[in-house]
Structure formats: structure tokens, C-alpha cells
């Protein structure tokens, strides 16, 4: 049985965002939109997390750090970019300190638009991420089987 659907652990990464998305993600753990009812937990250490939420356009200083955090996560992992800045860079992409979009630093699986997106949208994205995690899990299983056969 695949248990990853029942307990997604979430870690949030602030890649030079403006706080708007962060406080909306934070709202998810509060009484009104409690996501712990789906078994999701907010983890401080990226090593424990299954889903990495990235907010904001990635600037030159956070670029390296985002990569490190991504590498620290255990397989299988899903990365979610929250907000317009995370998706396309918004207008920040014209800034001198923002040279790339977030998806050129780490592979992003789910894009959540909005400035900032409503908490309901983020919950929906987390649910979609669970389906994706299951898919990824099955894929790695298949690959492992192939590898052992060879």
C-alpha cells in the first residue's frame, strides 16, 4: 500500500518572496484551513519533507541555498512553486539581482498561480501533489525492478 498519500510532510522555502505567499501558506496550519486533517505536517527540516513549497522569485543569493535544500530532501519529492513570482518571476525578472526563473534552478512539478493564491488553491495543489507523489513512487519502483532484472 502506498502511504505517501496519507501523510505528506511539507517544508516551506522562502526564495526572496515578499511575504504575501508565506503568510497564505502559514494560514494552512491555522484553525480555518487546517491541513493537518489530511495528515500534512509542517516540518522544519527539509530532510523530513515530501513536498517543498517555494515562494518568490529566486535571486542570486538564494539560488545556491535552494539547490542545497532540494538535494537534502529524501526521494520521492515534489516541488511546488507558489505565487506568480515563483511561476514566472513576475516583474521581478527585470531586476538586476534576479537572473533566472525558479524552474531553471530546481525542477518544479506544480505551479500555483495567484498573487498570492488563496489558501483553498494551495490545499488543492497539495492534494494534486499527493497524486503526483504516488506516480513518482510507482515509477521508481518500476525502474528498480528493471535495474534488478538487468
Amino acid at each position: 500500500m502506498n502511504m505517501i498519500r496519507k501523510s505528506p510532510w511539507v517544508s516551506i522555502f522562502n526564495a526572496s518572496s515578499c511575504n504575501g505567499c508565506d503568510i497564505e501558506v502559514l494560514t494552512l496550519v491555522t484553525p480555518k484551513y487546517d491541513i493537518e486533517r489530511f495528515g500534512a505536517q509542517w516540518k522544519m527540516s527539509p530532510r523530513h519533507a515530501d513536498i517543498l513549497i517555494v515562494t518568490g522569485c529566486t535571486n542570486e543569493t538564494t539560488k545556491k541555498r535552494l539547490k542545497t535544500v532540494y538535494d537534502q530532501m529524501a526521494h520521492d519529492k515534489v516541488v511546488m512553486a507558489i505565487g506568480t513570482c515563483g511561476n514566472s518571476g513576475n516583474f521581478w525578472r527585470f531586476c538586476y539581482n534576479v537572473k533566472q526563473r525558479t524552474d531553471s534552478v530546481v525542477p518544479i512539478d506544480i505551479y500555483v498561480p495567484g498573487c498570492p493564491p488563496r489558501p483553498e488553491t494551495i490545499i488543492d495543489a497539495v492534494v494534486k501533489a499527493l497524486a503526483l507523489l504516488k506516480e513518482k513512487k510507482n515509477e521508481t519502483k518500476k525502474n528498480n525492478k528493471k535495474a534488478t532484472k538487468k
Partner: peptide
């Protein structure tokens, strides 16, 4: 410096409506 993007630089040369945004 983890959050520095260069807002002040970007504001320069923009019209007022854009700057408001």
C-alpha cells in the same frame, strides 16, 4: 541579502502607474 532583488533600481524609469503596482 537573501531577499534583495533591487526594487529601487527597478522603480527608476517607470511610469507612475507601474510604480504603484
Amino acid at each position: 541579502g537573501y531577499l534583495h532583488k533591487g526594487i529601487e533600481n527597478m522603480l527608476e524609469g517607470k511610469s507612475l502607474i507601474k510604480c504603484l503596482y
